[in-house]
């Protein structure tokens, strides 16, 4: 069960968008999202973020500002960290997108997710998906990142609850773990 006991909307089919009514010519788009190929018709104005959330029902990725200032919408696009609110979906035909929902393997959490749980790397949790995706991207770019570098390299992701110390500890622990696993 989801936290708070609410699971509204699970399993609902995506409603069709009446393309002719949107006021903008729709585009057919193919994306590979968390390993699944999806084909959908999108409003050309739709950001990648809104497409993930509204159309694909992947609401783990959060909209904190819609202005590229907070980092809550961070996803991996073809393996790189991007702010999904600042890019239009139609620009990414054929791209691979990984969201926070795509990290765990079944019940097994990704090492970064595990470390965020163990180190209490969040409070309200609203920025957490973005923090985790940023951290996953960071560790892929710099497997040997040092503790001293983490604060600067994670400063694109705001956390107003300010769990920053724990976020650093979690990333450091995850980095250590993945190096050990080499």
């Amino acid at each position: 069960m989801l936290a708070g006991g609410l699971s509204l909307g699970a399993g609902l089919a995506a409603p069709p968008v009446r393309a002719e009514a949107s006021g903008a010519k729709p585009e057919i788009l193919t994306l590979v999202v968390n390993g699944d190929r999806v084909r959908l018709e999108v409003d050309v104005r739709a950001s990648l973020l809104d497409t993930l959330r509204d159309r694909l029902r992947l609401t783990g990725t959060k909209k904190g500002c819609d202005q590229g200032a907070c980092g809550a919408c961070t996803v991996l696009l073809d393996g790189r960290r991007v702010l999904s609110c600042l890019t239009l979906a139609v620009m990414h035909e054929g791209s691979e997108v990984t969201t926070v929902e795509g990290l765990a393997e079944g019940d097994r959490l990704h090492p970064v997710q595990r470390a965020f749980v163990d180190h209490d790397g969040f409070q309200c949790g609203f920025c957490t998906s973005g923090q985790i995706m940023s951290a996953v991207g960071l560790l892929a770019e710099r497997p040997r990142v040092t503790a001293a570098e983490i604060p600067e390299l994670m400063s694109g992701n705001l956390c107003r609850c300010a769990a920053y110390s724990n976020i650093r500890d979690a990333i450091e622990a995850a980095a250590h773990l993945s190096r050990e696993g080499e």
Binding site: L2, A3, G4, L6, S7, L8, G9, L12, R53, R57, L58, T59, G60, T61, K62, K63, T99, V100, E101, L103, A104, L109, Q113, F116, V117, D118, D120, F122, G125, F126, T128, S129, I132
Partner: peptide, 22 residues
């Protein structure tokens, strides 16, 4: 650890704007 921790790190945690109705 927080009882809702797993939901918060996997994206399953549902906030108001994540809730949908037909």
């Amino acid at each position: 650890s927080r009882v809702e921790a797993r939901d918060k790190v996997t994206g399953a945690a549902r906030y108001t704007a994540d809730t949908r109705l037909p």
